[in-house]
Simulated scan of single mutants.
Amino acid sequence: MIEISKAAIAEIHRMQTVRARPESKFRVSFGNGGCEKFYYTIDLADSIAETDRVYEVDGISVLIDGQHLGYLEHLKLDYSEDLMGGGFRFENPLATTVCGCGNSFSIEHVESERWQLPT
Results as ranks from 00 to 15, higher is better:
M1P: 04
M1G: 09
I2Y: 00
E3A: 05
A7Y: 06
I9K: 05
I9V: 11
A10Y: 01
H13K: 10
R14Q: 11
Q16N: 10
Q16V: 00
Q16S: 11
T17V: 03
V18N: 04
V18D: 12
R19D: 13
A20E: 13
A20F: 09
R21F: 09
P22S: 11
E23K: 09
S24M: 02
K25A: 13
F26Q: 03
F26E: 07
R27A: 06
V28S: 10
F30L: 02
G31L: 10
N32A: 08
G33D: 12
G34V: 12
C35D: 13
E36R: 14
K37P: 06
F38V: 08
T41Y: 02
I42V: 15
I42S: 06
D43A: 14
L44Y: 09
L44C: 02
D46M: 02
D46E: 15
S47V: 03
S47T: 15
I48G: 09
A49D: 14
T51G: 07
D52V: 01
R53E: 11
V54H: 04
Y55K: 12
Y55F: 15
V57N: 07
V57L: 02
G59F: 03
I60V: 06
I60D: 03
L63A: 06
I64D: 07
D65S: 08
G66P: 05
Q67D: 14
H68D: 14
H68K: 04
L69W: 15
Y71Q: 08
L72R: 09
L72I: 04
H74T: 12
K76P: 04
K76A: 15
D78A: 12
S80W: 10
M84P: 01
G85M: 05
G85F: 01
G87V: 01
G87K: 05
F88Q: 03
R89A: 08
E91W: 00
E91P: 00
P93T: 06
L94S: 15
V98I: 14
C99E: 06
C101M: 07
G102L: 08
G102K: 12
G102S: 11
S104P: 11
S104N: 11
S104I: 14
S104G: 12
F105Q: 02
F105I: 07
S106M: 06
S106T: 14
S106N: 12
S106D: 13
I107E: 13
E108F: 03
H109Q: 07
H109K: 13
V110P: 10
V110N: 05
S112E: 15
S112P: 02
R114H: 11
R114M: 10
W115F: 15
Q116P: 00
P118S: 07
T119S: 09
T119Y: 03
T119P: 00
